[in-house]
């Protein structure tokens, strides 16, 4: 047991929590934006995966990690645009649309990976680039905090800044106000001339943007290559984190951290003598428990409100 606590209470562990949280947080922010506009984008997993592969391929061919990131983002936005076209324009059911995106991405990425690299499993044959880690001057010299907060991948910092950005966007900007009005009372939004379809399209594109950033982190930061189905349910965990966060930006951030911590714990405990198969279930078990707790709390709250 001592070794357990020594693993958990170490700066390495705290560092890895932030690292592991990054893709979940980015995708959760995306899920938050689309949910606020009243449209549930369950295609996060597929969008992440697409972003991850596109980043690797584009960076390998251009030799630039940044161009790779741009490519990843473009692919995420494009995929969401397809989803928006199907669900908002020709009125396919959003859940079916999301499932299609996920299945398409799961199979499609392997297909494209095979075409490009001749390998169905990993992208080792591609000379893909990795986004840089940042060592922050001054901060890195502070004891405890320094090793935890400094030296992360640039996308980890972007994800933290994005929390503030999304908070400001939703709470303080005209777009955020319109987005929330569309989600809460679309008729009201329409009656003052707001185009519900336009706002929901923007929300879907933004959610695709954030999901693909999360995906790019997976293949160009967390790992330095693409492997098939490498997002391993993080898109779903992100949707769970958004729900657990009660639809608020801060709540989504905290919930993402919780899921990130269980994920990190699963990684860290693999060095101990706990069967790794069991440990690997932690993040998913945490998701189920988290959603259960959330659902119970929500039901109680609603009961209170109704009576």
């Amino acid at each position: 047991m001592d070794s357990f606590w020594s693993v958990i209470f170490s700066t390495d562990f705290a560092f890895s929590v932030l690292r592991v949280t990054t893709p979940i947080l980015l995708a959760a922010l995306g899920a938050l934006i689309s949910n606020k506009a009243g449209i549930v984008n369950i295609g996060m997993e597929g969008t992440m995966l697409t972003g991850a592969l596109t980043g690797v391929i584009v960076s390998a061919y251009t030799g630039s990690a940044w161009v790779g990131l741009l490519g990843a983002v473009m692919s995420g936005i494009l995929l969401s645009a397809v989803l928006a076209y199907f669900t908002l324009k020709i009125k396919t059911h959003i859940i079916l649309g999301g499932i299609a995106i996920n299945m398409f991405a799961s199979g499609g990425t392997v297909f494209i990976l095979y075409m490009v690299s001749g390998d169905k499993g990993t992208s080792t044959s591609l000379q893909s680039k990795v986004l840089p880690n940042l060592h922050i001057p001054l901060l890195q010299d502070i004891p405890v905090l320094g090793p935890i907060l400094s030296g992360h991948n640039v996308l980890t910092y972007i994800s933290l800044l994005a929390v503030a950005g999304v908070y400001y966007l939703l709470k303080r900007t005209p777009l955020g106000l319109q987005l929330r009005s569309v989600g809460e009372n679309p008729q009201a939004a329409q009656s003052v001339g707001i185009s519900v379809v336009k706002i929901q399209t923007i929300a879907l594109l933004l959610s695709g943007f954030f999901a693909s950033l999360g995906g790019a982190f997976m293949s160009m930061g967390y790992l330095s290559l693409f492997t098939r189905d490498m997002t391993a349910g993080r898109g779903w965990i992100a949707i769970a984190a958004e729900a657990l966060g009660g639809g608020s930006t801060v709540g989504t951030f905290v919930a993402s951290l919780i899921f990130g911590a269980t994920n990190a714990m699963a990684n860290a405990l693999q060095i101990l003598k706990i069967p790794s198969e069991l440990v690997a279930t932690f993040p998913y078990a945490a998701t189920v428990i988290g959603l259960l707790v959330y659902a119970i709390a929500e039901t109680r709250r609603k009961k209170k409100k109704n009576s």
């Binding site: 400001y168 303080r172 900007t173 005209p174 106000l177 319109q178 929330r180 009005s181 809460e184 009372n185 008729q187 009201a188 939004a189 009656s191 003052v192 001339g193 707001i194």
Partner: peptide, 28 residues
């Protein structure tokens, strides 16, 4: 409208300016 076209969680002022928000910088 008979069924009010208001967003319940918004303030009166937010409902008033919805779709024609006065801006300060990027924000409302």
């Amino acid at each position: 409208h008979q069924h009010f076209m208001l967003v319940p969680s918004f303030t009166v002022a937010e409902n008033m300016v919805l779709g024609m928000e006065p801006k300060k910088g990027l924000g409302i």
